[in-house]
Simulated scan of single mutants.
Amino acid sequence: MARSHATYWAGRGVVRGAQAVDEHEGAPSWWHSSVRRLESWSGTPSAQRGLDLVRRWGPVAVTLAYLTVGLQTAVIASAGLVKMPYLRFAIASVPGAIAWAVIWATIGFGALWAALALFARSPWALAAAVVLVVLAVGWSVRRRARVRVQAEV
């Protein structure tokens, strides 16, 4: 909850900072460069997906973002960027955070204990399992990127 709310407020800060730079051209150079870096982040594909989801689904996107990996931060920061009212964001984040905690407490800890048990039996088996997972994730990411590029063409 602390990280997601800090990310939300960082998104709100980007908007406020951009407004302040527009209003006060005499801001220090580090301020301008920080705002430019944050504005450039908001133009990345992941950030654009997050913005699109928040604009389309609103608080539902925030709740469901807790169930994603890689898109979570983009959606939560986007809620701040589009100035979603804080109370609406906070209410939407509670069920998402609870779902994330339940998933981590069950599947996450189960995977951790399974990895520790496998390591106790054979560190090489654990290393092989990690390599297989990394290869599977890499294959999946490349496949999705290839499909996305083909869809854009």
Rank of each mutant, 00 (worst) to 15 (best):
A2P: 04
A2Q: 11
R3M: 10
A6T: 11
T7K: 08
Y8I: 06
Y8W: 01
G11C: 04
R12S: 02
G13I: 08
G13F: 09
G17Q: 06
Q19T: 08
Q19K: 10
E23S: 13
E23Y: 02
H24R: 14
H24W: 06
G26V: 08
G26H: 15
S29P: 11
S29T: 13
S29K: 12
W31S: 06
S34N: 01
V35P: 00
R36K: 15
R37E: 06
E39H: 10
E39Q: 15
P45W: 04
S46H: 08
S46T: 15
A47F: 12
Q48W: 05
Q48M: 14
Q48L: 15
V54Y: 13
R56Q: 14
G58R: 13
P59L: 06
P59W: 07
V60W: 14
V60T: 15
A61L: 10
V62G: 05
L64G: 03
A65I: 01
Y66A: 07
G70R: 03
L71H: 06
V75N: 08
V75G: 07
S78R: 09
A79C: 02
G80N: 02
L81Y: 03
L81V: 11
L81T: 03
V82M: 02
V82G: 03
K83A: 12
M84N: 02
M84H: 00
R88D: 02
F89P: 00
F89K: 03
A90K: 00
A90N: 02
I91D: 00
A92H: 01
V94G: 04
G96L: 05
A99L: 15
W100A: 15
A101T: 14
W104M: 13
I107T: 10
I107Y: 14
I107L: 15
G110V: 09
A114N: 05
L116T: 07
L116S: 07
L116A: 09
L118Y: 04
L126P: 04
A127Q: 01
A128Q: 10
A129G: 03
L132I: 09
V133N: 07
V133Y: 14
V133R: 04
A136F: 14
G138L: 09
W139N: 03
S140V: 00
V141E: 12
R143I: 00
R144S: 13
A145R: 14
R146T: 13
R148Y: 06
V149H: 10
V149W: 09
V149F: 03
E152H: 13
V153D: 09
